[in-house]
Design a protein around this nucleic acid. Structure first.
Lengths: 335, 335
DNA sequence: CTGAAAGCGCTTACAG
DNA sequence: CTGAAAGCGCTTACAG
């Protein structure tokens, strides 16, 4: 088919200048309507494809957004962030942008090595997807390139988009209390990520509001500092409900409890968070909080594009509402 | 930090030409060793970043590879291809290339609309990941751009990389027969994808070789033409073993059988294929065939880069070995 | 409404 | 070993 048709080819064929071709194809003023139609027809007929690279060079932007995901959040069993990535790509497509995935190795993160796509100016901005080391975020900020954090935030002055973890968890705990539960533990390493921390604090708020005690032995760590799952030590006696920081851990816990002969939800209610794959893999299926991944992706992309186009705007921390999904892992507790 | 340092800035600072800077930075001949070092130092000190776009324009290639995945293979519960994508990106990184994901909508596939990144010349070649409509593959071939199929193939003359589905399934069935099984059914829609078809034929070969009958009622469809899972109708009496075309279906089947009170593997052995997430979600965990996703990704990338650099080479159909993973979903059958 | 000129930042021959 | 010239394919003022 068409080897390398350029605007010049169209121009020559029509006996006009490339300037007019460019204007016609880009819908810009300064071309007669009749001529514009003719240009478009010729372009289609010749199989013309825009050379975005030439356009990019002239305009000084790549129409690409880098997306950085730590390697530890990828791989089998961790589909969450790759699915997020897919949503990002689809949101970027709306703006005619492309996503450039960078899988960040732990040693590069530790030694503050920025992605190759940064050093090669292949991206106009970066979305950092999933909690990264603060120093690494700082290194990015130092470059002056637009950065948006997605699904986490730090105390640094950066735009970020996160699910409403705090209120989501608060509502979930409220729900358990409304169902009659009083002995409610939280499952998650509260020093691990901002999301887990906020979910923990929402749980705390609910307990405080209902004058229930905050018991340290009711905070059950589920992973180490590096995010690797660890064995969960259950308190004795078992609480009547466990608020888990995510579906995957809730799923693991349900399986674990059932192996020990403890019935869920009859003897112990369990709630998740995320409404991902894991929430429907066990029986009973999990009552959980759905974070609207798509809306988060769209918000992050919109913010990023806006920053690039009008480079002064700062959106700050943006929360995306969570929505409860009621299934069968919670049973009313008779008081 | 550095706003927009170009080679010209380095050249001016050193009182030399940009040509020399370019040669020095790219490790090309024609620069004194001493000067080369000085150029590199200055570049680092100024925070110079190569403008790949300018380089691309000059050289006429983007250093991007498009990866097309049909939307039906994405989303929750379908992490397989997104994981594949991640492997591709990491393999591309070795060659200083980037991946550009395109999620193909069903209507674009049907009406043969090529991806925007094709029309904008943003990619030097395309990897088609996961079975697509033959007409769509044909549309791509018509453009003359390098194309490699990954995890499927057609009867068209295209390069492709696939797992060794035929022999993998053949070996798995051999194993069941060696364990004493004689009544073995195959689960999968054999008209749906080349992979399923080949896995079916491997199963057939094993039966033929052992002089076991090929029974039509032992071919159990698991999905419709569009790849959506359907209810599986089990034959009565139940075979002693079920060879499933993938782990996800094997997983679904195990859960389904257990709900009906049928014990796996005591009353019925089940095998999977892929060794993905689903193979370890049920109890018993699945005996399955692992396709080496990483090797497949690396092979596809290497083939693609080679095609772009020396544009005549054709690798044809490349098979990547599969490897059995023995777990607990198969029990010897006493004859 | 139309186009000649300049330039985005590189790299590739080619000349010295 | 070093550099002046040309060009990749666009787009943006600016002039007519």
């Amino acid at each position: 088919m068409n080897a390398n048709i350029t605007m010049r080819d169209i121009a020559e064929k029509l006996g006009i200048s490339t300037v007019t071709v460019s204007k016609a194809l880009n819908g810009k003023d300064g071309v007669g309507e009749e001529l514009r139609v003719k240009v478009k027809e010729t372009a289609a007929q010749l199989g013309y494809r825009l050379n975005t690279i030439a356009k990019s060079m002239k305009e000084g932007c790549s129409y690409n957004i880098g997306v950085v995901i730590a390697e530890r959040y990828t791989g089998a069993g961790h589909s969450f962030y790759m699915q997020f990535y897919q949503q990002l790509v689809q949101a970027l497509e709306e703006y005619q942008y492309s996503g450039l995935l960078h899988v960040l190795h732990a040693d590069d993160e530790a030694s503050l090595v920025l992605p190759r796509i940064y050093n090669e100016r292949k991206a106009d901005g970066f979305i950092l997807l999933g909690q990264l080391d603060k120093a690494y975020v700082h290194a990015f900020l130092g470059t002056g390139i637009p950065v948006t954090l997605l699904d986490f935030y730090t105390d640094q002055p950066v735009d970020s988009v996160v699910g409403d973890n705090f209120f989501g968890s608060y509502e979930m705990t409220n729900y358990l209390i409304a169902e009659g539960h009083r002995d409610i533990a939280f499952v998650g390493n509260i020093y691990s990520t901002s999301s887990i921390q906020d979910r923990y604090l929402g749980y705390c708020k609910s307990l405080l509001e209902h004058k229930l005690p905050l018991r340290p032995e009711y905070v059950l760590s589920d992973r180490d500092e590096l995010g690797r799952f660890t064995e969960i030590t259950l308190p004795v006696p078992l609480p009547t409900a466990l608020v888990c920081n995510c579906d995957q851990v809730a799923y693991n816990l349900v399986v674990h409890l059932q192996k020990k002969g403890i019935q869920v939800p009859e003897q112990c209610s369990v709630t998740g968070f995320d409404n991902d794959l894991y929430s429907t893999l066990c029986e009973p299926k999990l009552t959980t909080m759905e974070v609207n991944m798509r809306e988060m992706a769209e918000t992050a992309v919109t913010m990023m594009i806006r920053k690039i186009k009008h480079n002064d705007e700062t959106a700050g921390r943006v929360l995306v509402k969570a929505k409860p999904v009621y299934r069968n892992s919670v049973k009313p507790q008779n008081i």
